[in-house]
Design a protein around this nucleic acid. Structure first.
Lengths: 266, 266
DNA sequence: CAGTGGTCTAGACCACACT
DNA sequence: GTGTGGTCTAGACCACTGC
């Protein structure tokens, strides 16, 4: 990879300001804006700017990295496309946050059968359980934890319009979530990922979901208010932070009589 | 919207070549590259370039539209991001096609439980039915057709590894698919959307899916080789061409014992 | 080699938000 | 007005492809 200092020195050798071209003819060439992107990413990960805060202006960043504004711009463009940054014309570029979001649940794709108003109405959350325990083998594997590591297990129910719709089992690495209790979960207003972000410094930036259809058994049917034998949508979500590190495994069961899971393809 | 001719005339008034700014202070301002994007889109829709073919080079397009290469570039960037065009460094920019694709089914999100090799192995297709009929009310509504318009109804089964996995019911506007028969569907090698594209000039560029969990009844269970009461993933897909016009409604039932529906969130 | 897309720069000006 | 992101340009050079 072409290192940044190299590029700068090349730049200084051309004081007339014409782009000298940054690539040294080399194996595995990386464009300047990608290197800038990586540097910004590192600052985000290091917490140099907090979620919701503005990052320095493009001009400032260009000066800091000794590149043109256009190059910084392209780096920020990609980070904004990945929902890590938010651009607001006339105001600045801000670190994305789960706390002050236009939609309650950014990762929840459930939509009511009726009413085209996008997200379902306000949810009511009930936490049934929250305990620390040794990670089950499959959970440890998914979260990339050593066998038997401590995890926090949370069980909760999400209700819309007064009826239970989602039963979630959630596992979090214990060492990242010291002091997480059902009480703190219940008290916090706003999405759970907002709490994780502000209280534990863990930011979910990407997730993969595996969807299957399953039949409700006696252990879950009553919790969702359905009969055994009802079909439920099983949603297994693995959420990741910076560096694609997995930090949450979630197994959800969704009632899909009044709601559906919406997806867009292109 | 700022019209293109206006911009050009402004341009010509500044022969020194410095960007004069294109926007007239006006309500509903549209940037130049958006206008270029719209023009390219119109050419695509009109079939000026066929799927798989190269479009003119950025320099040629810049000359045609009397804008800078950078402006054309930004327009093409967005179209490529929407999977309407494919860029290939050193070769050119190509019209996206369903025919010569690296994956068999671009819109199919099914993945085997084992084997991380992405898409499922080669599919076997069996067409159970293909007939013209008056559109059911809900189908006509979804496809934006007048009540009672003719549609083509197709029923088919997709099998992987010798076992049936997907039962699809498909409806297509009759007037766009004259002469579509089960035989032509069976004969065609490659994805169905490739056939639609090359034989009927209909290109699917975007789709929305609604996912639900349902229980298999006696009418579908035998076709998928499962018992009645098994949970199946119901996938309703509405596919659209240019201008967001809906041109295909598809209701699929997926077995999700050996496969799952994969989705990425960010 | 020429032609294509890809990167980078510098500079000008517009649209928007706050003061 | 000042400062921010957003658009547009012109020009140079790099990386990749194929003749």
């Amino acid at each position: 990879m072409t290192s940044l200092p190299q590029s700068s020195s090349v730049l200084e050798a051309h004081p007339e300001g014409v782009a000298p071209g940054v690539a040294v003819s080399s194996p595995s060439f990386s464009p300047l804006y990608q290197q800038i992107k990586t540097l910004i990413l590192k600052s985000l990960q290091a917490g140099e700017w907090r979620p919701g805060e503005a990052i320095p202006s493009e001009i400032d960043l260009a000066a800091r990295f000794k590149v043109s504004q256009g190059t910084v711009r392209k780096a920020i463009d990609e980070l904004a496309a990945e929902n890590l940054l938010m651009r607001r014309q006339g105001k600045g570029t801000f670190v994305a946050t789960h706390a002050e979001e236009r939609v309650q649940y950014r990762f929840l794709r459930l939509t009511p059968n009726q009413s085209a108003s996008g997200q379902p109405e306000v949810a009511k959350r009930v936490f049934l359980d929250c305990k620390r325990m040794p990670a089950p083998a499959d959970v440890a594997l998914a979260l990339n934890l050593p066998a038997g590591a401590t995890v926090v297990e949370v069980r909760r129910i999400l209700s819309f319009a007064g009826r239970p719709v989602i039963l979630d089992d959630i596992w979090l690495p214990g060492h990242l979530f010291e002091g997480l209790t059902a009480e703190r979960l219940s008290e916090y207003k706003g999405p759970m990922y907002g709490l994780f972000e502000s209280e534990f410094g863990v930011r979910m930036i990407r997730a993969e979901e595996k969807l299957r259809a399953v039949v409700a058994d006696e252990s879950v049917a009553p919790l969702l208010g359905v009969k055994s034998g009802t079909a439920l949508l099983s949603v297994e979500r693995l959420s990741r932070t910076y560096g694609d590190q997995p930090v949450e495994l979630r197994r959800g069961l969704y009632r899909t009589d009044d709601y559906y899971y919406r997806n867009e393809l292109s």
